Computed example of a mutant assay.
Amino acid sequence: MSGLNDLLHAIKTAADDGEETILATVVKVEGSAYRRPGARMLIPLHGRTVGTVSGGCLEQDLAKKAWWLTDSGEPVVRRYSTGATEDEDDEHSSLTFGLGCNGTVFVMLERLRAKTPSPAIDLLHRVRDSQQPAAMATVIATSRNASARVGDRVLSDTDGGLRNPPLNSAIREDLHKTLREKKSSLRLYTDARGEVEVFFEYVAPPPRLVIFGAGHDAQPLVRMAKLLNWHVSVVDSRSHYARPERFPQADAVIFANLDNPFDLQPLINDAAVAVMTHSYRQDRHWLGQLLHGAPAYLGQLGPKERTERLLADIGLSSPALHYPMGLDLGGDAPESVALSMLAEMAAVLNQRNGGMLKHRSRPIHSVDLLVSQALAHQQAGVGV
């Protein structure tokens, strides 16, 4: 959800001003592409776009043509090919960019009206504000006589949905599966009236980073994490360090006196956590509590020998503790150290090893599988 805050802010600003905008969303990718399904861009009638749906090759064409493509008011899906050659006899030749990326990107365009609620935007707000995941099913293609339309949606956290009860029921079941597996996918449903292709999007809240230590080297780490749209909290027991004005981009700056402990678990569970106070007493205090928690990533800054002495004093150890924290990138400036730490956190959260991509034998991105499901009226018990 990189750039989500900027996107939602731009949508709200336009709505407050009574202006209509167009939301462009990547809903399907075949082959190689810079952005994956779920990437979004806002296209205003006047002014600059917000967000990206590619590496910069599709945005200009979308901004130029989105308004007349959606002139009917209905959502449409635009197909772009980034193949190496153009075929003038191809019905889609006008959408071929000849970039040599050998991928096809499908982008859905839909108008956002100032006074008309958007279920998709409302869901994005709820996920961001509640820090709880959700799932969204969006119809992206249909047969001529199908029982759904492009742009129809079913959301995991609200009632309602499609008018076709068997199809709606099947989609809701797959929404639950999307939440369980925490993975977006494409599915094709077939009934007596035709085919309906649906993009199931797993909408995760922004990753959370909790930094124990409000020193100078924490400042670039906060800034870099916010560039990735992470939710960032800074904790320190020194009141002259734990000040919001030192970390204007942080979501929370917490002064925590060591003599008045508080329950850390809601703050750290499933979050990336960095201990970097440069105070042996503070590090020992925080690390002793953190080792009893369930963070998604836990790292300790400093030499290996120092951390091992901390663990010995605490009387605990954990194979999941990352120390020294960070990837071996070289450089000793605070910004270099922050980059090293954040890169390791991102690799762990994404279940990667942080190695060079040129040594990766598997595809960079996982392949989105197309799953066919038959919704025959005999199975559903209801005519479709």
Score class of each variant (00 low, 15 high):
Asp152Met: 08
Asp152Phe: 00
Arg153Leu: 14
Val154Gly: 04
Val154Pro: 01
Leu155Gln: 06
Ser156Met: 09
Ser156Asp: 14
Ser156Cys: 05
Asp157Glu: 14
Asp159Arg: 13
Asp159Met: 03
Asp159Ser: 15
Gly161Glu: 03
Pro166Thr: 13
Pro166Phe: 01
Leu167Val: 07
Leu167Thr: 03
Asn168Leu: 10
Asn168Pro: 06
Asn168Cys: 15
Asn168Tyr: 04
Ala170Asp: 03
Ile171Lys: 02
Ile171Thr: 10
Ile171Arg: 01
Glu173Asp: 15
Asp174Asn: 15
Asp174Pro: 02
His176Trp: 05
His176Glu: 11
Lys177Phe: 10
Thr178His: 03
Leu179Asp: 06
Arg180Asn: 08
Arg180Val: 13
Arg180His: 13
Glu181Val: 13
Glu181Pro: 06
Glu181Thr: 15
Lys183Leu: 03
Lys183Tyr: 02
Ser184Asp: 04
Arg187His: 11
Arg187Tyr: 06
Arg187Met: 12
Leu188Gly: 03
Leu188Pro: 05
Leu188Ala: 09
Tyr189Cys: 12
Thr190Ala: 11
Asp191Leu: 02
Asp191Val: 08
Ala192Ser: 15
Ala192Asp: 15
Gly194Arg: 04
Gly194Met: 06
Val196Trp: 00
Glu197Cys: 07
Glu197Asp: 04
Val198Gln: 04
Val198Glu: 02
Phe199Thr: 03
Phe200Thr: 08
Phe200Cys: 11
Glu201Met: 10
Tyr202Gln: 07
Val203Tyr: 00
Val203Cys: 05
Ala204Leu: 09
Pro205Met: 09
Pro205Ile: 12
Pro206Ala: 15
Pro206Glu: 11
Pro207Tyr: 02
Pro207Ile: 09
Arg208Leu: 10
Ile211Phe: 00
Gly213Ala: 10
Gly213Thr: 13
Gly213Lys: 08
Ala214Tyr: 01
Ala214Phe: 03
Gly215Pro: 07
Gly215Asn: 12
His216Asp: 14
Asp217Cys: 08
Asp217Leu: 05
Ala218Pro: 04
Ala218His: 03
Gln219Ile: 13
Leu221Thr: 04
Leu221Gly: 00
Val222Gln: 00
Met224Asn: 09
Met224Pro: 03
Ala225Pro: 01
Ala225Arg: 05
Ala225Ile: 07
